[in-house]
C-alpha cells in the first residue's frame, strides 16, 4: 500500500490544465489553486468526473494549498510564479517544486529566459526546495482531458534525485516520452545573469 501524495497545482490556465491532464492516471490528491477560483472549481469538477485515479479539489489560498502539499506545481507565467514562490516560501521548505517552463509565452516577458535561469530565479527565492522545470514539448490542450494530449515532456533539474522523482511521476501517469536533463552546477552558473550554456 502506498500513501496518496498531495499535489498543489497553482494556476489552472493553459499550462495548469496540461499539468493536470498529465497527472490524470496517478493516484494523487490534487489541490487546484487559481486567482480565478471558478476556473479552478470547473477544472476540479471536470477531473473528478473523468475516470481517473486522482481526486481534485479547488482551493483559494496558494499558501494553504502548498502547506498541505507534498509536491507543488507552478504553472502561471514566470512573473507570477516568482510572486507565488515568495508567498509560499515558508511552507515549500524541503518539498518538491515543479515549475512549468513556457518559452512560447511572450505576454509576460518570459521570452529570453532560459530554463537554467528560470530554475535559478526560483531557487534564489526557495533555497531549501527541490526544484525541477518541466516543458510540455508536444502538447495540445484542445483534446480535452486525455492523457494522450501530452506526447512529450522535458524535465530539467540541478539535482539527479529530483530529476528522477519528477520523471517517475509523469512516467507513472502514462506520459510516454519523458526526456530528462541534469543541469550542471558550476559556481559561474549560480550567479544571476551569468552565461547559460543552454543558450
Amino acid at each position: 500500500m502506498h500513501i496518496k501524495e498531495t499535489i498543489a497545482l497553482i494556476g489552472t490556465g493553459k499550462n495548469g490544465r496540461l499539468a493536470a491532464v498529465s497527472l490524470l492516471a496517478c493516484r494523487y490528491q490534487l489541490l487546484l489553486c487559481d486567482k480565478n477560483i471558478i476556473q479552478a472549481r470547473e477544472l476540479a469538477q471536470e477531473l473528478n468526473n473523468t475516470a481517473c485515479d486522482c481526486v481534485a479539489e479547488a482551493m483559494e489560498c496558494s499558501f494553504n494549498c502548498a502547506w498541505e502539499a507534498d509536491i507543488i506545481i507552478l504553472t502561471p507565467d514566470l512573473e507570477e510564479q516568482l510572486e507565488v514562490a515568495g508567498y509560499i516560501k515558508a511552507v515549500a521548505n524541503q518539498k518538491l517544486l515543479i515549475s512549468v517552463y513556457d518559452d512560447g509565452n511572450s505576454n509576460s516577458g518570459d521570452k529570453g529566459i532560459s530554463s537554467t535561469q528560470q530554475i535559478d530565479l526560483i531557487r534564489d527565492i526557495l533555497p531549501n526546495t527541490k526544484i525541477a522545470l518541466i516543458k510540455f514539448a508536444t502538447a495540445r490542450c484542445d483534446k480535452g482531458l486525455k492523457t494522450n494530449a501530452i506526447e512529450n515532456i522535458e524535465i530539467y533539474s540541478r539535482e539527479q534525485n529530483t530529476l528522477d522523482t519528477v520523471a517517475g511521476i509523469f512516467k507513472n501517469s502514462g506520459v510516454e516520452n519523458v526526456k530528462k536533463e541534469l543541469l550542471s552546477l558550476t559556481p559561474n552558473m549560480l550567479q544571476p545573469g551569468s552565461s547559460d550554456p543552454k543558450c
Binding site: 516568482l82 510572486e83 515568495g86 508567498y87 530565479l121 552565461s195
Partner: peptide, 28 residues
C-alpha cells in the same frame, strides 16, 4: 549570453518585501 530582464529582479525584491510580514507571522 543573455541578460535577465531587470523587471524580474525588481519584481522579486518587491514581492519578497511585501510577503515578509505575512511570512514572519506564519513562521512564528
Amino acid at each position: 549570453m543573455k541578460q535577465l530582464p531587470l523587471f524580474l529582479f525588481e519584481r522579486c525584491r518587491i514581492t519578497l518585501r511585501l510577503n515578509l510580514a505575512k511570512l514572519c507571522l506564519f513562521l512564528s
